[in-house]
Design a protein around this nucleic acid. Structure first.
Lengths: 170, 170
DNA sequence: CTTGGAAAGTCAACAAGGCTGACATAAGCT
DNA sequence: AGCTTATGTCAGCCTTGTTGACTTTCCAAG
C-alpha cells in the first residue's frame, strides 16, 4: 500500500517525490494547512457576524478596486445570487460602495469604504502574520517552491485570474 | 501600498520574500490552488450525491482504519453532530463499517467496506493525479519547499495530527 | 456495588453559503 | 426595434456547519 504504481516504472532519476505516499502527504498537508490559513480571519469575522464569503469579497475588492460584479463572479467562482447576498449585506453595512459605470452604465464598480478598508486591514494583517511566520520559518527557497507547486495546482482559468492579479493590473 | 512595513526595517539579508506584497500573493495562491485541489473530487462526489464532508471522512478512515469517532472528530475539527450525520449516511449506504470496540465497548471503530474503498480509490486517484502533475511540473526541490511552508502554516494541534498520520502509525 | 463521567448516538432548531430557476430592469449593440 | 449583457432580486432547496438537550452504554474509582 505504501509505494504507488507511479514509482514502480520510474527511470534512473529520483522520482520518489511522485510516489502515492508522497502525494498523499501533500494532500493532507493542503487540508491541514488550509485550516490554519483561514483560522485567524474566521475568528475575526465571527465578531462582526460575517463569514468567509464576506472576507473573499472584501479581499478581492480591496485587491482590484473598481472591479465589476461580473469580474468578481469570475474570480470567486460562485453564482451571482450567492455573491449578491454577500454584497448587498456589505453595501448596507457601509463597507462597500457600488458606483454605476461611466462608459457602461449597466456595470457596477465596487470600492471599499473607509470602514471596509479598516476591516480588510484587520483581516489581512492577521492572515499575513501567520503567512509571514510560515515563510520565515521555511525560508526563501521553500517559499519559491511553495508558490510554484500552488500555481501548478490551479485550474487554468483560476491561474489566469491569479497571474492577472499578481502581475499588477486590475 | 506595494511594499509593506515588514520590508522597511529589514537587515542586510534579502528579506524581500517577506514583503506584504509577496505574502498577499501567497495568500491568493492558497485560495486559488485550494479550489483546484478540491475540484476533481467534488465532481466525482456529485455523481454519488455526496459532499466534501463525506470525502473527508472517507479519506481519514482509509488513512487510519479502525480509528474511533472521537479521533476522527479531533482530526476533522467539527462537532460530533456534524460528523454523525455524514457517518450515518455512509454506514447506511454500506461504505463504512462501525464496529464496537473490544477493550472499550463504548467506542466505535470505523472501517471502509469494499464499496467504501472503491470510492476512496476513485476520489484519491483523481486528487493525486492533479497533485502529481503539479509536483512533476514544479520539481522535487519545489515540492520540498511546498511541504515545509504548508507545515509551518498549520495550527500546532493540526500539525500533531498531520505528523502522526504521516509518520506511519494509526 | 454504586456512581460519576466519558463515549457515542439522537433529536430539534438554526445559520451560512452554496445552488437553480424565474423574472425585472436598464443599457448597450446591431 | 429587437437581441444581448449586466445586474439585482425573489423563492426555494441542499449541504454542512453550529448549539442545546437528552439517552444509552459502559469503564473505573470510590
Amino acid at each position: 500500500m505504501a509505494e504507488g504504481a507511479s514509482a514502480v516504472a520510474q527511470s534512473g532519476e529520483s522520482l520518489l517525490f511522485l510516489t502515492d505516499e508522497q502525494l498523499r502527504k501533500g494532500i493532507e498537508a493542503m487540508f491541514f494547512a488550509y485550516r490554519g490559513f483561514t483560522a485567524d480571519p474566521d475568528r475575526i469575522l465571527q465578531d462582526h457576524a460575517y463569514g468567509r464569503a464576506h472576507h473573499r469579497a472584501i479581499h478581492f475588492i480591496h485587491r482590484a478596486p473598481g472591479t465589476t460584479v461580473n469580474n468578481l463572479l469570475a474570480i470567486l467562482g460562485v453564482t451571482k445570487q450567492s455573491l449578491n447576498r454577500v454584497l448587498r449585506c456589505l453595501i448596507e453595512d457601509g463597507l462597500v460602495e457600488s458606483r454605476v459605470g461611466n462608459r457602461d452604465k449597466r456595470e457596477r464598480h465596487l470600492y471599499l469604504t473607509a470602514r471596509g478598508d479598516a476591516l480588510e486591514q484587520q483581516l489581512s494583517d492577521a492572515q499575513r502574520e501567520r503567512m509571514r511566520a510560515a515563510y520565515r520559518a521555511a525560508g526563501p527557497e521553500a517559499v519559491a517552491g511553495f508558490r510554484q507547486v500552488l500555481e501548478a495546482m490551479m485550474d487554468p482559468d483560476m491561474r489566469r485570474h491569479f497571474t492577472r492579479l499578481a502581475d499588477g493590473g486590475v
